[in-house]
């Protein structure tokens, strides 16, 4: 067999997979987005821009998603970084594996059951009841954007912790000694050495969380009481309730475009921040 043929055979399964699982669905969605809804729901072939012209009807969902996804990512980052730092640098290596497992243990049960736990915790008999005991009355948590954010932080924490943990764990500890040796106090060593060198992990974590959050629908539905509406929820409704496949496809196309644009902006920003460093790549 010629090397060329071998190369092709090696790439064939992945190529076939990508073609059927990624390219074809995207083509279908794009084709549908120019179609019309059938009388009882579904799709009728057509060529119309009507679906795209109707996109402003979902403006609020895009607005919610584009607000809560970055804010959620940032909060997840702010909580995950110290945790990953502790695990990678401060924790006793003897316990490290156990602690890492503890980070993922909650994910052994279904998101549904965990969300119900949160519904109880944030509901009237949970935290608000405790706050009431301390004289803070009338605090509403469940079915608010705050509850959705809490759920997001909880659900996405490991996705952020692990890449950061890996980049911190790989960090050569002697670099910190070198920094200290050259006169830098620990906090400045963190800012000048640890933080920049863990940026690849931060970038990866943020990317993972942000992209998944853009498509999130379960957490807003469960903890937002149907009142905090993401693009994902709009899609679920369009395909599974009103069965408006063409409009659903147009919203999906718009979401993909928004995602591509925000990811591109993000990558540019990271690149600029990394000042062209080769060691700070995105993945």
């Amino acid at each position: 067999m010629s090397p060329k043929l071998i190369n092709r055979l090696l790439l064939a399964p992945a190529g076939l997979w990508l073609l059927t699982m990624l390219v074809l669905p995207i083509v279908v969605v794009v084709v549908f987005s120019f179609g019309e809804r059938a009388q009882a729901g579904g799709y009728v072939p057509a060529f119309t821009l009507e679906q795209y012209l109707n996109l402003p009807a979902r403006w609020k969902a895009f607005q919610n998603t584009l607000t809560l996804a970055p804010v959620g990512t940032l909060i997840v980052l702010l909580i995950a970084y110290p945790l990953a730092y502790y695990l990678a640098i401060k924790a006793n290596p003897k316990w490290r594996t156990l602690l890492l497992i503890l980070v993922i243990v909650p994910f052994w049960t279904s998101i549904l059951i965990r969300s119900y736990a949160w519904i109880f915790i944030l509901g009237g008999r949970g935290i608000p009841a405790i706050l009431e005991f301390f004289g803070l009355e009338g605090i509403r948590l469940i079915n608010t954007p705050f509850a959705v954010l809490a759920g997001i932080v909880y659900g996405y924490l490991p996705l952020m912790v692990f890449p950061i943990y890996v980049s911190l764990e790989r960090l050569d500890k002697r670099l910190l000694e070198a920094s200290a040796d050259l006169g830098s106090p620990p906090w400045r060593s963190f800012l000048q050495i640890t933080l920049p060198l863990s940026l690849p992990g931060v970038a990866t974590g943020c990317m993972l969380v942000f992209i998944l959050l853009m498509g999130e629908f379960l957490i807003p539905a469960m903890l937002g009481g149907g009142k905090v509406f993401f693009v994902g929820n709009a899609l679920v409704d369009l395909f599974l309730q009103s069965r408006n496949w063409p409009f659903g496809s147009a919203v999906a196309v718009a979401l993909v475009l928004v995602m591509l644009v925000s990811v591109t902006i993000y990558m540019r920003a990271i690149k600029r921040w990394g000042n062209g460093r080769d060691d700070v790549s995105l993945m």
Partner: peptide
């Protein structure tokens, strides 16, 4: 270390890669 008037050349140098 950061308050001592000594400096070190580390084994494998420990240069800052970034």
């Amino acid at each position: 270390p950061h308050k001592r008037p000594v400096n070190m050349v580390f084994q494998h140098y420990a240069l800052f890669p970034h």
